[in-house]
Design a protein around this nucleic acid. Structure first.
Lengths: 148, 148
DNA sequence: TATATTTGAAAGTCAAAGAAAGTCAAAGAT
DNA sequence: ATCTTTGACTTTCTTTGACTTTCAAATATA
């Protein structure tokens, strides 16, 4: 298991049912996992960005910390927001995270998530770089639109 | 016995009765068989493809791995028959007909049919001729496979 | 006392190094 | 002729660390 995944899971587990935000010290967490502090930034930027349903704030200086907020919307507005925010270059990883989040928020069902994953998978598409992400974006957007 | 056959058997033996997917490191396996890593890719692409009822995913980078999912072929001979009868150049019209048939015979639900249509639609793919039908074929086969 | 400066404790950035897997074509077997 | 093996090169993702920026509290200065 990759360290980044372990940290991702650990952070996700910090959310309790009634609280939709968490706070922690970057160095503290890094020390806990015996890694460099910037590893935490890596995890946050690849797994907890706004498109994936999270909003992040932080403070530097003494007593500084990182605060992650879970965006709590389960409606079409959120879907539309996500779709509109997708650039023309959706990577497989991005798609993966989006699908995971839509599923976690109960916006789509598991079979639907599965189909989305398959249809946006790099190996399945097997296209040269110049087409890959654009095609994936179109497939993803159109499939999502048909799920609303 | 060819090495590729030995590796094929070894991978198949990794599946237990109750688990329908396995995971392993490519380099690890290659080391075990004392062969080059790309040998593993050869075995996978010739023996563990959709036509044989397998779906493959993988991750690169640190902690990367290969994941193979097995579909219970005997459970759905009709689906497998379709997958195997499709040539490498499925047109949108062909796909349309197949989807319609699957739906009419109650093999797939309406939302599933819809998603299949979207993901195999020419306008959505919007690719030059030389890629179009091949990509559609891969998407179609892999999606169908994951509906079983 | 009120402001200005220093200091140390965070967090942020970015690029290089590392760790896998993927590709493709040439060489070798059957 | 076709299938298999091999290896050089590429791409993708993760980890690490040196350097930068920001903030708050402590200290110094007017």
């Amino acid at each position: 298991m990759r360290l980044s995944e372990v940290i991702e899971q650990y952070i996700k587990d910090m959310f309790s049912e009634d609280e939709d935000f968490i706070e922690f010290g970057r160095n503290e967490l890094a020390q806990y996992f015996n890694c460099v502090p910037s590893q935490i930034n890596y995890v946050i930027s690849t797994r907890f960005n706004p498109e994936k349903g999270y909003y992040v704030e932080s403070h530097r200086g003494g007593g500084g910390n990182i605060k992650i907020k879970r965006i709590n919307v389960t409606n079409d507005k959120y879907m539309m927001h996500i779709i509109n925010s997708i650039e023309q270059n959706l990577t497989q990883q991005d798609a993966e995270m989006l699908i995971q989040n839509l599923f976690e928020y109960d916006v789509i069902s598991e079979p639907e998530a599965k189909l989305l994953r398959v249809a946006t998978n790099d190996k399945v598409l097997n296209l040269p770089k110049e087409y890959r992400d654009e095609v994936r974006t179109r497939i993803f957007k159109n499939m999502i639109l048909n799920l609303i």
